[in-house]
Design a protein around this nucleic acid. Structure first.
Lengths: 230, 230
DNA sequence: CGACGATTTGAATAGGATCAATGGGAGTGG
DNA sequence: CCACTCCCATTGATCCTATTCAAATCGTCG
């Protein structure tokens, strides 16, 4: 591994306060791999070989039941994923695929578990990271359980607007069908949800969305600090 | 705190390998409290003062949006809850109420955070516990996102049957309206879901349920190792 | 016994999914 | 460069699932 790659890892809060030697030995046997789009990285039933660090590109975590499939979450660089699975030494619990060409640093799960045992600083950070992941899923769970499809879309748009700070204009970071799946609806229904939001100042042009009545949209969406990410 | 109470705490995997002195200092300032049924213990926006250990009774964790409300999970003795919130020193993220008269051991969250810093064994266990909690919510999320109401009920019945090992007979451990909320539907819809399951050998008599065609029910439910708890 | 809440049932409605057909881009190969 | 193909997105029609509103029944507890 190159120094620049080590730096990327080091820049993540999870690894920031790890002792140098422990970081080194954890990264031994790790490798950076490049994947094209649409590649399945692992299935939910696979044993967790690696903690993944998405360095570039985009990854979708999804789950399947029968022949239904749903997006659990989207990963953007730079971030780790499947930390919980890597730490408990079991199945991944979710499947993953690339949405774009991606670079992923793969750290052997066994190394991560060893690091947790040997480096108490890292264990602390792992606790914090896991707690944040946990609250993230709790938010997603509340979102789908307590809101309608239109409300979920409206809140999604508001969150994106805050993140992109685009002054009334945002660009969807994923294909609409992926967005639909993440929001727990069909692509058809997402189209209709956008139509429903037209009276609230939402206009759509491909992936470019204009939000011209933010106040009205907020009135509809009723965003909540305990569901919507900052 | 009495020795018997310390023993209860010690019996939980989370605290099992904690050094004696650390356990002692963590429990300093803790107290066992008795609550009647239907008492709100905290709201999702409250700052997390205590890690809770349910010693006896039953507790519901729930969330509210607008004036909609939904059960997130049910806690049964002996178990801790809101560990993640206690560790990160923020809001609870979920509200809690007792469903029955309950005894709850309340451990100051600050003590828990200190224990995590001081006791590396405890930090390890916290990681494992959090990872398990995380996977628990992921399961719940998949369940509600990928299954219909009838499927969720069918799988719930099968899980209860396995747990109660009642040879074709189970008893619902909660009121039907609470079960409905946990399964993400209205009480009316739960009634109808039970009716729908009649052809699959499910007969209802109050809280007593008989499952007379387990194979048919499984065919309908299509249980999944990665959604349904063991 | 009477009151209250839980549960059930019925009817109407709403929210979403499915099926089908059409339009639109992006990429491919001629 | 253009025609072709493929997949995404949209729209319409219909169906199904689940919620809402209303009313009746059942149980429990004071």
């Amino acid at each position: 591994m190159r120094d620049s790659e080590v730096e990327i890892v080091r820049s993540l809060p999870l690894f920031s306060s790890m002792a140098e030697e422990n970081l080194g030995s954890m990264l031994a046997g790790s490798f950076l791999q490049r994947f094209p789009a649409t590649v399945v990285l692992f299935a939910e039933s696979d044993l967790t070989d690696f903690l993944h660090v998405l360095v570039e590109g985009q990854v979708e975590l999804y789950a399947s039941v029968n022949n239904r499939e749903g997006t659990m979450t989207l990963i953007k660089p730079v971030a780790t994923f499947v930390l919980a699975s890597a730490l408990v030494d079991g199945a991944y619990q979710m499947s993953a695929r690339t949405l774009e060409t991606s670079q992923i640093l793969m750290i052997p799960a066994e190394n991560v578990r060893k690091a947790m045992r040997d480096d108490s600083e890292f264990a602390q950070k792992a606790v914090m990271e896991l707690a944040a992941c946990y609250h993230g899923v709790v938010r997603a769970y509340k979102n789908i359980k307590l809101r309608t499809a239109v409300e979920r879309l409206a809140n999604y748009l508001l969150v994106q607007h805050r993140r992109q700070s685009g002054e009334g204009e945002i660009t969807l970071p994923v294909e609409k069908r992926t967005l639909a799946s993440m929001l727990g609806m069909t692509p058809e229904n997402l189209s209709r949800a956008f139509s429903t939001l037209k009276p609230y100042g939402v206009t759509v042009d491909g992936a470019d969305i204009r939000l011209e009545k933010l106040n009205d949209l907020e009135t509809l969406a009723k965003p909540s600090e305990f569901i919507d990410a900052r």
